[in-house]
Design a protein around this nucleic acid. Structure first.
Lengths: 245, 245
DNA sequence: TCAAAAGTGTTGGTGATACACCCATGT
DNA sequence: ACATGGGTGTATCACCAACACTTTTGA
């Protein structure tokens, strides 16, 4: 039997299969703390709780394309780098049915974060409270950081707290040896801003001169020649991220 | 409407969904080179080509459980640590239908590798030829290393070459700062064996005294007191892996 | 002139590299 | 005795943390 003939007789629906979704962790910074875009579920299940933006994967789209679609439809953003994080497949993670979800991570600079909040009234920003240091891992808490939220730590839907914790872990791990830190900054930035980003993600203060030199020696920073404006003290040099050649 | 009532009216089959599978990269060492367990496809599609062991994810099993089941049914192995690698979702990766596959990585010590080969007549061992160094990434080639295979580099089915390349990349990345290196060794081993494992995975020679001290200073090695036997030269101390406390 | 933050020079510690060397064992 | 690979001591170097210090700006 030829391969073509075999395929024409193949029944793709012979077995039941889990549903497949993507969930997006959209991370940014707020007042020097890591924060995330969430939306409050209007419908069951978990109505009223806060969830990561997500959606089902269509038959004719790749996982990356599904992530981009969710980014566009639920956050109004395009052209943001999305990276696959992990795939979550616990049996009871969704009470409706068996849903396996591929989690994606995207880093939003302040400007994109603001655009998303302005364009999508249902989205809110929450600050992530990471109670562990280094790469210890463990649960994270999520605090209101937005007029649309009130009071207490937020209850997250499904296993989204777990996804969020893994996102922080991954981010911390990649910060030293990759260029992820720059994704949270505007095109021009000062070394102090870059250090603030690193400190926010790592959750620890860093030594200024050491950080400075480490970054400059790496060769990823190109001085723009212009300087910060509007300070009441010596203005800092503005740098641009220059891809490691 | 209550959540319970909502759920009772929910139709899980409202949308078509991709099929979901797991594929296992079972890595070991052969003559000091990284090698992998493959099986030759008897059926369409890609009949005759070599593939990673895999299987569909059932509705009532987690992804990890599916990986363990495949490990048991297709390689005859149990109690091997499996780690999720990446999820592959290209549209045309399988000609039968849309299949999204969660790739898992497991490291087999020589003994488990042999058990699998002896117990499962269809399995073969192939040597992986990695034409790049460091974490550059890129395609890998797969060479016969077994009486069941002949001659030329093997043609892999589906996107399994891509999965294999990512497995090598991940392994190299984790080798320095994690305990993955020990998973490829028997319980008792010499420092030279450990160094051979590292050199095989990294694809570069390492400095002996430096490697020695780095490993011993890390505090993960416990001397067993006994020594290698059957050498025609000074027998080396045997060590055990001691979990970092 | 002062406060505040940018930016630099110097020093000490840690760990990797490289080399030379000694040690134990079977033949 | 000697070949072979295991194991150790030591000098050197690169890198990084910490501190003290100078510089530049607006008020």
């Amino acid at each position: 039997m030829s391969e073509a003939k075999f395929l024409s007789g193949y029944d793709p629906d012979a077995y039941d299969r889990p549903a497949l979704a993507v969930d997006l962790v959209l991370l940014g910074l707020h007042d020097g703390r890591p924060s995330v875009l969430l939306l409050q579920r209007a419908e069951h299940p978990h109505a009223g709780r806060w969830a990561l933006p997500g959606g089902f994967v269509a038959l004719d789209e790749t996982l990356d394309a599904a992530a981009e679609r969710v980014l566009r439809d639920k956050a109004g953003l395009a052209g943001i780098q999305c990276e696959q994080l992990y795939t979550f497949g616990a049996l009871d993670r969704d009470p409706r049915m068996r849903i396996v979800s591929v989690a994606y991570l995207a880093l939003l600079p302040e400007r994109a974060f603001g655009e998303a909040l302005d364009g999508m009234p249902k989205l809110s920003r929450a600050v992530i409270d990471v109670p562990w240091t280094g790469e210890a891992g463990g649960p994270v808490a999520v605090l209101p950081a937005d007029g649309r939220m009130r009071g207490e730590p937020l209850a997250l839907a499904f296993d989204h707290a777990e996804i969020l914790a893994l996102a922080i872990l991954r981010l911390r791990g990649k910060l030293d040896y990759s260029d992820v830190g720059f994704a949270l900054l505007p095109e021009h930035f000062t070394l102090r801003q870059l250090q603030d980003v690193h400190e926010a993600i790592l959750g620890t203060p860093l030594n200024k001169p050491a950080f400075r030199r480490r970054m400059l020696d790496r060769g990823w920073l190109a001085p723009t020649g212009s300087r910060e404006a509007g300070t009441s003290f010596r203005p800092a040099e503005l740098y641009r991220f220059q891809k490691p050649s």
